[in-house]
Design a binder for these strands. Structure first.
Lengths: 182, 182
DNA sequence: TACCATTTTCATATCTTCCTGAAAGGAATA
DNA sequence: TATTCCTTTCAGGAAGATATGAAAATGGTA
């Protein structure tokens, strides 16, 4: 019962720490480096605009590290820079809308990772067609490989379509909710 | 035009190499280590049962490495051991059904990674309820954090439900197809 | 049981990724 | 323009993840 009657500040910090740690682990799932995730986690859970020094102190991370990861977060669009008038420092704050955050990441990963994969797969498949291989394409070995690649393409295209549908805009969210509650 | 009239074997190897390489990159997406992915890629695209020596030779990987990664693949259920009678060696072959492979990985990652995250999140949320915090829970700072965690939980629970629906069984596949073609 | 073929394990080496701190760069103020 | 405050960059180092290869274990065969 060590936090039974702890001060508010202490309790909040306790929750924040747990959350940051959780976000840290989730990073790999989102394809985000752990430290980047921790910083973002802190900004999200605090809900306030923090300065680099705040973040350094709170997470025990060096200045350079914070700086680089913050710029990546800004690039991703998960975090935005905030100027406070009368203060030279820059502050940073996270998007507040989880759905927006999620679709941002999903769409970017699709573009950066999924689409290239689909293209390579198509190239592979095409190298096994009769147009390219001539009579050799009919050989069992070639045909089987063609089929396997094709199956994969069909599945990935399907998943791609689904994710488009759900993550492309805010409408997807509503649709998803309806789908599960109907 | 270097492969214009190449031998069948050579052409197949060429495609196989591309595919293995692609799989290697996809590994990170599936939460699978690159080498593990390469081995699995090779087994999938070849569609045959290969021995450890085959794999070592084809991918240029050491025996110990192949051994360890193969056992992980077997653990995951993506690859099965095959005994050929009259041959002491063990052979390994990949599942052939891409949908099955996908659901296997999805379900396992859910269990290993998503579920623990959901639990931690719930714990975090509960620490911010009036039951635990008393009057402090009403403070703006505490309430805001509670809301943010709750929003996140709602979204993740939704996504979790969707994935359940799609990846739990073969029915999910049909449903997904219908959804996109309707 | 002794032998041989094969696989597994694990200490060590290698590679990659990430982090630090100090120096350089920028931009607001005086 | 000089000064001050703050941020970015990056070479070098630390930590972590992977791979190797040889020794130990396993399990079939004679």
């Amino acid at each position: 019962m060590k936090v039974a009657s702890a001060g508010l500040r202490k309790r909040l910090e306790n929750v924040e720490d747990q959350f940051v740690d959780l976000w840290n682990n989730m990073g790999s799932l989102w394809g985000i480096s752990p430290t980047m995730a921790r910083i973002h986690g802190l900004l999200y859970i605090c809900g306030a605009a923090l300065s680099m020094d705040d973040i350094m102190a709170r997470l025990g991370i060096s200045r350079g590290n914070v700086s680089m990861n913050l710029s990546k977060l800004v690039e991703w669009g998960l975090v935005r820079r905030v100027h406070k008038r009368g203060n030279r420092k820059e502050f940073y704050e996270s998007l507040a809308d989880v759905w927006e955050m999620f679709t941002l990441v999903a769409n970017q990963r699709k573009r950066r990772e999924i689409d290239p994969i689909l293209n390579t797969l198509k190239r592979c498949r095409d190298e096994l067609t009769p147009e390219v291989m001539g009579a050799q394409a009919a050989k069992e070995e070639a045909h089987m490989r063609f089929e396997r690649i094709n199956e994969l393409l069909k599945l990935l295209t399907l998943l791609d379509g689904l994710s488009q549908r759900f993550f492309e805009s805010h409408k997807g969210l509503r649709e998803a909710v309806e789908m599960l509650t109907s």
